[in-house]
């Protein structure tokens, strides 16, 4: 599905505080499987996730998606790929305050200009599936952490992406909610979606919902 070859990523390159967050990563992410990146804080998990999800470009190395090299594509095409192929669930959920849950879920589809009624139905169906139908008109800042995460998941699914990317999905959840998340994870992979997540939560890493664990340290992969 996604192939990384000799990926490096430097922050503040050429300056005194230059920092290599990724230092030669080769990784193949298989389709329809749940892959978890794990490792100590600062090891480069989030950075690797941004490269995998086309949110950031690597400093060097090649990224290919379904066999097609996308490292050289201009920003516009990357956005297009990101919109069609990836759905993101951020650690802080990153919902837009002041808007309702439903509006937040529909947001990624706006630039595509779909028919409004159909879009609304799709968003409502996603919220219902995540047991949030009764909260769809509520402003997101009034929702609990677990509810906010489910809104974020619904938002990630609205454009029906092949790959779902989640950064530290259980960091803000208690055990019960984390288990609920793992159940959703299984559903997603059962639907045939590829899931990529980072976590240092043993509950996630050791879960049967996760098919593969990739460990990192100091910007490199380490054998598990």
């Amino acid at each position: 599905m996604i192939e990384l070859r000799a990926i490096t990523k430097a922050f503040n390159q050429g300056q005194h505080n230059e920092f290599w967050a990724l230092d030669g990563i080769d990784l193949t992410v298989e389709a329809r499987r749940v892959t978890a990146l794990t490792g100590p804080s600062g090891s480069g998990k989030t950075t690797l996730l941004t490269v995998l999800g086309c949110l950031a470009r690597p400093t060097s190395g090649r990224v290919s998606l379904k066999g097609e090299d996308i490292s050289g594509l201009p920003e516009r095409f990357l956005t297009e790929i990101r919109r069609r192929s990836f759905g993101f669930v951020f650690q802080q959920f990153n919902l837009i305050r002041g808007l309702s849950a439903l509006e937040n879920v529909m947001l990624p589809a706006y630039p595509l200009g779909p028919e409004f009624g159909a879009l609304r139905l799709r968003a409502e169906a996603l919220l219902a599936r995540l047991h949030l139908a009764h909260r769809r008109e509520a402003r997101v800042e009034w929702l609990s952490g677990g509810e906010q995460q489910r809104v974020a998941i619904a938002r990630a699914l609205i454009n029906d992406p092949e790959v779902v990317i989640a950064d530290e999905p259980t960091a803000n959840l208690d055990t019960a909610l984390s288990r609920q998340f793992l159940a959703i994870l299984e559903e997603l992979s059962a639907e045939g979606r590829t899931v990529l997540l980072t976590s240092h939560d043993p509950l996630v890493v050791e879960s049967t919902a996760v098919h593969r664990v990739v460990s990192m340290r100091d910007g490199r992969l380490v054998a598990a």
Partner: peptide
Amino acid sequence: ILKAIGWETSD
């Protein structure tokens, strides 16, 4: 956030 969820700069 808008950009990350797939809005283009121009959007």
